Simulated assay, not measured.
Amino acid sequence: MTHQVRAVVARGKGAPVSLETITVPDPGPGEALVKIEACGVCHTDLHYREGGINDDFPFLLGHEAAGVVESVGEGVTDVAPGDFVILNWRAVCGQCRACLRGRPWYCFSTHNAKQKMTLADGTELSPALGIGAFAEKTLVAAGQCTKVDRAASAAAAGLLGCGVMAGIGAAINTGNVGRGDSVAVIGCGGVGAAAVVGSNLAGAAKIIAVDIDDLKLDNAKKLGATHTVNSKDADPVEAIRDLTGGFGADVVIEAVGRPETYKQAFYARDLAGTVVLVGVPTPQMKLELPLLDVFGRGGALKSSWYGDCLPSRDFPMLIDLYLQGRLNLDAFVTETIALDEVEKAFERMHRGDVLRSVVVL
């Protein structure tokens, strides 16, 4: 049996997305069919549309999603029909060298559904991050479904599927922010704002938000930043040092993904401090640093993949904090939109008007 559903498709590089009817198969072994309730509009979806990830068009966009499992295939035991789940793009294999060493958050062999969803004419679709959730239903590997408390808002919960988890995890998992630490976050879009929240959850004493947009800085302050720096008006390195007794921050999280801002992060940290790169650079970008400075400043230079999260561990914990009122995921939902408004949401994203537009079905 197959399912005919509405979905948002990117057919060509830079072309506006279209709302089309696609065909979704019933789940095979190890797969799950999920009825989508909400899906956030992420910069990564725009990167797919612009051909910045690869050129495997047409793409089925959307990946920051929550919904209900409708059916499962043979051998699936971790989730069942009726479960409320957040979708993830790290379905760990349990067998690669990272998993066998007890580090499944680095899994080097994550997997997706084996069957393909298609356009009406049979053309195979490439689902964004192996998910493809700007759709009424999608087919994923069962391991991409993480069961959480049904009491959570789908619009808020789905954001843990990518950007919010990336930012929170960059602070807590990768940066190991601890009680009393000083943290600077460079770039306060959705991921950077989440890094502010993560630093606050971890007990940081000083959280310095850096951006060129006063609106984003105001929002970061509401989410827990203790200080803000507009880097159009002030040298961010000097400002961060001034706010940390002249030393620099214990942890600096770079959420932009550019060589210029990475250098700022590098020099804005204290001796033996940590730099976390969670912003995603483009393939053409190059970084040049004096090797003596890399050696002489000590500490750690880290990249954060998906906030180094383990969905089965982190998603339920963060949803519990949300339901307890200790994690304001609702603050990331700037607006809710319909499935046919994704292209307009991309335009608002370009202007910096939103933390997240969320498609609600």
Rank of each mutant, 00 (worst) to 15 (best):
G279N: 07
K35C: 09
R348V: 02
K114T: 15
K216I: 14
R258I: 02
I172A: 07
V9R: 02
D293N: 12
A239Q: 11
V69G: 10
V9L: 03
Q4R: 12
V237M: 07
A272Q: 14
L215M: 13
N173A: 04
A157E: 01
D83Y: 12
A345L: 07
V85N: 08
T138F: 12
R6D: 01
K13T: 12
M1H: 11
Q264S: 08
V342H: 09
L292S: 00
L291Y: 00
G224V: 01
A268N: 03
N54R: 14
D181C: 07
G94S: 01
A10S: 15
L61K: 14
I337A: 03
L329Y: 06
Y322Q: 01
V197G: 00
A154Y: 14
F315P: 04
P29D: 01
M349N: 10
L292T: 00
G62E: 03
D340C: 10
P25E: 00
P281K: 03
T138G: 05
L61Q: 11
K286S: 14
A331M: 11
D213L: 15
P311G: 07
I36R: 13
V354P: 09
C99S: 02
Q284A: 13
R179V: 00
S71N: 11
V256P: 05
T2G: 02
K344Q: 15
L46M: 14
V92G: 06
F84Q: 05
R241L: 08
L287S: 05
D314Q: 07
V68E: 11
V164M: 03
L329C: 01
T44V: 12
T2N: 02
D242K: 14
Y306N: 10
K286A: 12
H43A: 11
G62C: 07
R241Q: 13
V294E: 00
I86C: 04
K116V: 06
I22Q: 05
L243M: 15
G158C: 08
G203T: 00
V280W: 13
G296H: 04
D270E: 13
Y322R: 04
Y306F: 15
G296S: 07
L139G: 03
T110A: 04
G224H: 08
V183M: 05
L217V: 13
A152Q: 08
G94Q: 03
R348A: 06
I186N: 00
N54H: 15
L223N: 05
G198M: 00
T282S: 15
P16A: 06
G245V: 09
D314A: 09
S126I: 04
V24I: 10
P127N: 04
G175T: 04
G203E: 00
I212A: 03
K263Y: 10
D83W: 14
E288D: 13
R150V: 12
T336E: 10
I208N: 03
V360P: 03
R90K: 10
T2Q: 06
I168A: 05
W105N: 12
E74I: 06
F346T: 02
E238A: 15
P311I: 10
G224S: 11
E347P: 11
L361R: 12
V177T: 09
A80K: 15
A265H: 10
A135V: 09
V177H: 02
A220G: 09
A10K: 05
R269Y: 08
D314H: 14
A170I: 01
G51I: 11
W305V: 08
T228S: 14
A195R: 02
A170Y: 03
A156I: 03
G75E: 01
G102D: 01
F59S: 09
T77M: 03
G75S: 08
Q284D: 10
D235V: 10
R150M: 00
S199W: 06
V251I: 13
